[in-house]
Amino acid sequence: MASTSNSTSSKIITLRSSDGEVFEVEESVALESNLIRRMMEDDCANNIIPLPNVTAPIFYLVIEHCKKHAEMKDNKEKKKELRSQGEELLKSDPHTYSNLMEAVNYLDIKSLMDLTAQWLADFLKGKSPRLIRELLKIKNDFTPEEEAEILERNRWAFD
């Protein structure tokens, strides 16, 4: 492994994304993922850890977010910065955002799951059901009567 360029003493873990790209990640970052932690504890991660459900560009995002999240602790400005980046991604490219969430969910990174879910929740707040259907590509499978009934039952919530 030609990881001589890395001067830090921390251990480097090699991961392979679904499309075959190999990543070298510091152990402290990799262990944020409970999935990788479990694999390492079970000793089934001797060489390269395969991640069959994560593609390389998404994995880039995950790692960047992990690093920033680690920096962000006790730093309100960093927190704000990360949040605004997340929101921008959500607005500009919801598809990637949902891929990111899936990857975070698969890798089981609790801190990032909290963050990404909270951003999306904040984003959905106050949006109309119709807009949300469009944004998340959900098909409305109610008949107009059914929809009207549900709407009527919670009419005050739409004020």
Binding site: E102, P129, I132, N140
Partner: peptide, 22 residues
């Protein structure tokens, strides 16, 4: 993931979101 997102929303929002889909 849907659960993770929706569980962070307010009750009022959720009552509205009931009519998104079945």
């Amino acid at each position: 993931i849907i659960i993770a997102i929706l569980s962070r929303l307010s009750v009022k929002s959720l009552l509205r979101l009931k009519c998104v889909c079945k």
